[in-house]
């Protein structure tokens, strides 16, 4: 078992980190325009709204939740030391976990069932969605069966993750944890390593500047409603491509 632990908890994170770094840089240099989520809103919007909304809000909350416990473990432990605050945090995080699951399943169903999306769906899309579903289900099971994760993450996993980053891996504590938790950690490493090969690269190029760039005005030189009605005749200008 020690060999497996060493591989999954030391070898794998470093492999994933190197693959991630080399892969993302290479892809950016080689095919810059593929750095995108390759939006398919044009082809289907209703399922996308529910799937993408639920998934993205949920995953942002959970990602920053995990990051907070990694960056300021002491404060998280202090916050959780009161039972009521702990319960509020756990229930909130669990609810966000559930909407991530709801969202990602909606997105998978959308990809598979809608014939319009077939041509723009690659095999890697399905692989990464399937992996995310496994990861989220594992995370929810950890939250349910190994309570209360928000505290012990800060107390036990943070020192482990820190030991990885300072290149002095210490897996004594983490290898004693149940396999359910270890598979959730392993799943995270696998997904992290696959980022450069999937549409997940879009998380590196989130268009945050949209929030403060000046908005663009679109001017129409003719009454749009009228032009769009196919029964009306062309009165002045023949419409261009809208």
């Amino acid at each position: 078992m020690a060999i497996l632990d060493n591989f999954l908890l030391i070898g794998l994170p470093y492999t994933a980190l190197i693959v991630f770094l080399v892969g993302t840089i290479y892809r950016y240099k080689a095919t810059k325009f593929s750095y995108s989520s390759l939006s398919s809103q044009f082809l289907e919007g209703r399922q996308l709204f529910w799937g993408a909304m639920a998934f993205h809000w949920g995953i942002l909350f959970l990602f920053f939740g995990h990051l907070t416990a990694f960056l300021i473990p002491r404060q998280v432990i202090t916050f959780n030391s009161h039972p009521l605050r702990l319960l509020i945090l756990e229930v909130t995080a669990f609810a966000f976990g559930l909407i991530v699951l709801f969202g990602i399943i909606t997105l998978l169903v959308r990809r598979i069932s809608n014939p319009r999306l077939k041509p723009v769906t690659s095999r890697m899309d399905i692989v990464i969605i399937a992996l995310l579903i496994v990861e989220v289900v594992l995370g929810l099971l950890v939250a349910l069966n190994a309570r209360w994760g928000s505290t012990w993450f800060a107390a036990v996993l943070t020192p482990y993750l820190r030991s990885i980053f300072i290149l002095q891996p210490d897996i004594a504590a983490v290898s004693a944890l149940p396999w359910l938790i270890k598979w959730h950690i392993v799943g995270a490493y696998v997904i992290f390593g696959l980022i450069p090969f999937t549409r997940l690269v879009h998380l590196l190029v989130v268009p945050l500047h949209y929030l403060w760039r000046p908005y663009q005005r679109v001017l129409w030189a003719w009454p749009r409603k009228k032009v769009r009605d196919p029964n009306s005749e062309w009165t002045f200008t023949k419409p261009g491509n809208n």
Binding site: R46, F49, W50, A54, G58, T92, F94, A95, F96, I99
Partner: peptide, 25 residues
């Protein structure tokens, strides 16, 4: 309670972003 919370969140999305484009172009 998690399921309850998830439902509340979905209602919020549906309620807040009522004007967002859902039909495809």
């Amino acid at each position: 309670s998690g399921l309850g919370g998830a439902l509340v969140l979905l209602l919020l999305f549906g309620g807040f972003w009522t004007r967002s484009k859902r039909g495809s172009v």
